[in-house]
Write a protein that binds this DNA or RNA. Structure first.
Length: 271
DNA sequence: ACCTCGTCCTGGTTGC
DNA sequence: TGCAACCAGGACGAGG
């Protein structure tokens, strides 16, 4: 499931292939990808655009064109960008042909992913309405985290999955961060003490930075643009480890369901 | 304003 | 063995 570390890993790997290149042909096969817009029209709009830079905000990839427009790509569950045409792949949903005769393909088995073409003045409002602080930037502090959780009665797990609290955490990295922070996922989000907020702030940073360093976690479909796998799954402390001993205290890890999402935690040292 | 839940999707796994 | 039911979850909209 592409979360911040996976999207950032894809960005770093695909940026050199796209930056400075002109889209000489664009093919979009799945109407769902550009919904509610007609994929044929979006493809036509993209043709001739030259890529200035590839950025990331939360779990969004931002392909910025020299015209000022931007293509906002969200991989959702199973989307992936590949530095390859992926000819014959039944799950290829779009194909970009570049002016250096290379191709970038978009593959998405479950078709949750989205492509949105925005004008220069639409991009920042679109993102600002949906996303909180960028957790790996200096502006994200324990104080800011406290402010975004203040007064909230939802469980910590649910509050951290909300992209407006902070941008980029998904089911995996929330469980990992809460394990590092020694905080119970059902804790009421607005009740954290200053010391707990500092622990959570450090833990979020730690989980995400390790994820980026390992180029994301490959459980089934996540791949880097060259088709290789991330290795963060080897570092999991909580996610998916039902019944395994906690690396800190040895207690068997528990699995529960919070906000409709599977949640793993240590019932002894996460309070 | 805040919170929870159902929906969209497909393929792999589980259970009868 | 075959097939149905279940499970995975990011974002969004409906409803409380």
């Amino acid at each position: 499931m592409p979360e911040l570390p996976e999207v950032e890993s894809v960005r770093r790997a695909i940026a050199p292939a796209l930056e400075g290149r002109t889209l000489v042909d664009v093919e979009i096969d799945d109407p769902r990808l550009t919904r509610p817009l007609d994929p044929v029209e979006v493809a036509a709009e993209l043709r001739g655009e030259r890529v200035a830079r590839v950025d990331r905000r939360g779990k969004y990839l931002i392909v910025r064109f020299e015209s000022g427009r931007a293509l906002l790509i969200h991989l959702r569950m199973t989307g992936s960008l590949r530095a390859d045409a992926l000819d014959g792949d039944p799950h290829r949903r779009a194909l970009l042909a570049l002016d250096d005769s290379t191709s970038v393909a978009y593959k998405d088995v479950r078709r949750f992913g989205t492509w949105l073409l925005l004008e220069l003045d639409e991009l920042e409002p679109y993102l600002a309405a949906r996303l909180g602080e960028e957790p790996l930037l200096p502006a994200f502090t324990a104080k800011r985290l406290g402010e975004s959780l203040a007064g909230r009665r939802a469980p910590l797990k649910a509050a951290l999955l909300d992209q407006r609290t902070l941008a980029g955490l998904g089911n995996i990295y929330v469980d990992e961060a809460l394990w590092y922070a020694r905080l119970q996922p059902l804790r009421e989000a607005g009740t954290l003490e200053p010391d707990e907020l500092r622990r959570l702030h450090r833990a979020i940073r730690k989980a995400l930075e390790l994820g980026v360093a390992r180029q994301g976690s490959t459980l089934s479909t996540y791949r880097l643009p060259d088709g290789s796998s991330g290795t963060m799954q080897r570092e999991f402390k909580a996610y998916g480890r039902t019944g395994e001993p906690c690396d800190r205290c040895g207690t068997e890890l528990s699995k529960t369901r919070i906000g409709g999402r599977s949640t793993w935690y240590c019932p002894r040292c996460q309070r």
